[in-house]
């Protein structure tokens, strides 16, 4: 089942981040697994997390791309959310200050990591999930 872009959606916000100051203009290095990640991603213009381990970095404050946060902490992935149009979103939480952030998944994100994250509430052994699913 291919994911089709539905018509009439708001276009993505223009992102005017100067990546050139860090020396590497077209890539960032993941803080979790040290993978070199290119900024160009299929399906999104706002890639902020590693496609392999889904870890991000706390750089933006309120507006995507404003680089106003002075925390620079590691943001590990917390949960999976779904938009009203069916798009998956990752919820990140900063490990040093506890802030939360949401970001759409990219086309090359690790499917196994995404599925494990989405299945996390359903595989919790402390809850009678099977009984609740029959409701």
């Amino acid at each position: 089942m291919a994911r089709r872009k539905p018509a009439g959606r708001r276009p993505q916000r223009y992102k005017d981040v100067t990546h050139g100051r860090t020396g590497r203009g077209d890539a960032f290095r993941c803080v979790g697994c040290r993978l070199d990640v290119p900024l160009l991603a299929p399906g999104t213009a706002h890639r902020n997390h590693c496609p392999h381990c889904l870890t991000s970095l706390h750089l933006d404050r309120r507006v995507p791309g404003d680089r106003a946060a002075d925390c620079r902490g590691r943001m590990s992935v917390l949960s999976m959310s779904v938009r009203a149009d069916g798009e998956w979103q990752l919820i990140h939480q900063c490990q040093s200050c506890g802030a939360l952030g949401a970001n759409r998944i990219a086309g090359d994100d690790n499917p196994l990591a995404l599925i494990r994250l989405a299945m996390r509430p359903l595989t919790d052994p402390t809850r009678p999930i099977r009984a609740l699913l029959t409701l």
Partner: peptide, 26 residues
């Protein structure tokens, strides 16, 4: 409410999103 998070301790958190200013809380 937009999603359910399971912490390492096994607790469940619920993530809320403000419908006006899009801020997230858990």
């Amino acid at each position: 409410p937009i999603s359910i998070a399971v912490l390492r301790s096994g607790d469940w958190m619920i993530v809320h999103r403000c419908i006006r200013c899009d801020e997230l809380t858990s």
